[in-house]
């Protein structure tokens, strides 16, 4: 038996929004530690690695580890039937071919449940090596979304150049070119508005804006995003999943392979 109850159900709705455009289907691997999902997009260029920690749920029961194969578009549609302030419970019997979602209104005066068929997925898992990145850039998630959106006007790719002075995002195309420079924040009152660069070595890498724009769908989960880069390795973009009190409930991490010169 697997059962997980999340009082702040909107977090699960936001998690689904953050992956449903990038992935068609994936397995939720449920264990005593929590619910994990790892999957690549169909072109094997980007990977999502997501974790919802068991202690982030108000109730969590997982008698034995199970893998729930899910059509993510279907799950996303069902979760749209939950109100933003609903409490969401996920339930699956061992060896079941279906998963149940229950939505309770805060006053408990409306309870709905939806059963969804599970899929048999033959998923391949990639080993992601522990990496000490040469640059880690933290910035407001809204700022990163805006940069990716704005530079998409100019081209398909962005060059991210991180030095001790700050970060520069550049794009070019037929109509011209554009650059956005972000300096490290000297003093900010609010931590979530800061730009912080932790750099051991300067790094310049090129990435597809199409994928970065998919990643920014996770911005509603977190006020800050971190970009971790080293030369010649995939970029890691991380949004932490925090509840209203700011306690960590997990993360959504995206990995994106770089583009190289022909």
């Amino acid at each position: 038996m697997f059962e997980a109850r999340l009082v702040e159900g909107s977090l699960l709705k936001k998690v689904m929004e953050s992956i449903k455009d990038l992935l068609n289907e994936a397995s939720w691997d449920c264990s005593g530690n929590g619910m994990c999902l790892q999957a690549m997009d169909s072109s094997h260029v980007a990977l999502v690695s997501l974790m919802l920690k068991s202690d982030g749920f108000e109730n969590y029961r997982c008698d034995r580890s199970i893998s729930l194969g899910i059509n993510l578009a279907s799950m996303s549609k069902i979760l749209k039937c939950a109100s933003n302030d609903d409490i969401i419970t996920i339930r699956a019997e061992d060896d079941a071919d279906a998963i149940t979602f229950m939505f309770e209104s805060p006053k408990q005066d409306r309870v709905s449940d939806y059963e969804m068929k599970l899929m048999n997925l033959d998923t391949e898992h990639l080993g992601i090596p522990d990496t000490e990145y040469a640059c880690v850039i933290k910035m407001p998630s809204g700022e990163f979304s805006r940069i990716c959106r704005d530079l998409s006007v100019l081209g398909d790719s962005v060059i991210i150049c991180c030095t001790k002075d700050g970060v520069r995002f550049s794009a070019k195309g037929d109509l011209g070119n554009g650059n956005i420079k972000l300096a490290q924040s000297a003093n900010v009152d609010k931590e979530e508005e800061a730009v912080v660069v932790d750099m051991r070595e300067a790094v310049t890498l090129t990435f597809s804006l199409r994928y970065l724009n998919f990643f920014t769908k996770a911005a509603p989960l977190s006020s800050q995003v971190s970009l971790s880069m080293s030369e010649d390795v995939p970029l890691m973009v991380e949004y932490k999943i925090n509840d209203k009190e700011g306690d960590s409930k997990g993360y959504v991490r995206y990995y994106l392979a770089p583009k190289i010169e022909d």
Partner: peptide
Amino acid sequence: NNIQLKLSYFFGNT
């Protein structure tokens, strides 16, 4: 022009 690399170039199967 740039070439998009695949993730399998960096990460191995487990």
